[in-house]
Design a protein around this nucleic acid. Sequence first.
DNA 1: TAATGTGAAAACCTTCACAGCT
DNA 2: AGCTGTGAAGGTTTTCACATTA
Lengths: 209, 209
Amino acid sequence: MDSIDVPEVVVLRLPLYVRALTQLLDEGTEVVSSQQLGGRLQMTPAQIRKDLSYFGRFGKQGRGYNVTFLLRELRDILGLNGEWNACLIGVGRLGRAIINYPGFAPEGFNIVAIFDGDDSRIGTTVAGLSVQPMRELEETVRANKISIGIVAVPANQAQEVIDLLVKNKVRGILNYAPFAPQVPLNIVLRNIDPVMSLQSMTFYLRDDG
Amino acid sequence: MDSIDVPEVVVLRLPLYVRALTQLLDEGTEVVSSQQLGGRLQMTPAQIRKDLSYFGRFGKQGRGYNVTFLLRELRDILGLNGEWNACLIGVGRLGRAIINYPGFAPEGFNIVAIFDGDDSRIGTTVAGLSVQPMRELEETVRANKISIGIVAVPANQAQEVIDLLVKNKVRGILNYAPFAPQVPLNIVLRNIDPVMSLQSMTFYLRDDG
DNA sequence: TAATGTGAAAACCTTCACAGCT
DNA sequence: AGCTGTGAAGGTTTTCACATTA
């Protein structure tokens, strides 16, 4: 393998390209140049070409990129052509919003099990799934080949939930709890934290910025 | 002013420090070193010291940082010691989840008005606020000094909503719609996009990563 | 002694600019 | 003629390492 040396920032941008290309496809565009793509995404054509060059040569000189082809390649690189099983931990207000979010499934992310530490919620049904107790996590993760854990418990319980996921070989964690998790180096962590987003935004909004 | 030259990455990390310091304060810790803080946040002590040095000299050699003091300073730098008024556009499932999210208000972010383009929703009440039609946005934004717009409409309507916010002098936009918005340079945009987070995560989860 | 604050060095990332292909 | 792919240049960010100070 030679994908060892792709900068992480580049990987973070690939989904953006996937988005833009999907939209272009919907619009019926067959070919796109780095110039045009850059226009949509507000980035330089050179950056797009350089990013793509880490993975291969997808364009045609003088012409640009075939949208369908590039899209398939990028989805392949990101591992998006299969399905991913995820579990959700925490079925409070936030957790229920997450499980009802209609954006995951069409992209191949399936929440196949839900857990909660609160006994009164065990056995209730949310979005067609029965809420399971935490002690069933190990078995369920294994049986369902769950590789992603979505954490939607209160901040003060989130670290122990994350530790449990890690112990059970869940390597990808999407954390919605507003705190800074500690995870081993081999775990892929993504935080969804709107308050933090706002807190850095205000720096630029103060007085006149 | 001399804050002109603070790298954006640094500003993006400040809220993380705010988080960690708040937690330390809760735990009763009075003084913290860059070493300890780095341990919690999984970053190097040098980076923390360098980041802070853009804004002033907050520590004491041989000792570390006074938690209360540093927290207040950082909140000041970020403009978090006052209140911020925001409006929400889109009161579908996602919008309702956002307005019911209990994390905003304690941090000084108040959603004071909600809008929707769908006539059937106008006048209904969500979380104590009456849903207003889009045409009232201009007046409401002005009257309530709204500086942040939270966008929770479907992707295909999001650009026009953002254009409208921009036209009405809303300079900060928190976008939940899964697409790549185009905004003028002076607008501060933050995207909340869990699917994109997952799509870059899977790159590292494929085969053995 | 212990930890900050900071120039300088190293690493990393973006942009340039152009050869080469269609 | 037009656009890609890419070394090299330029710029930015991180890390190092140490003088300095409580």
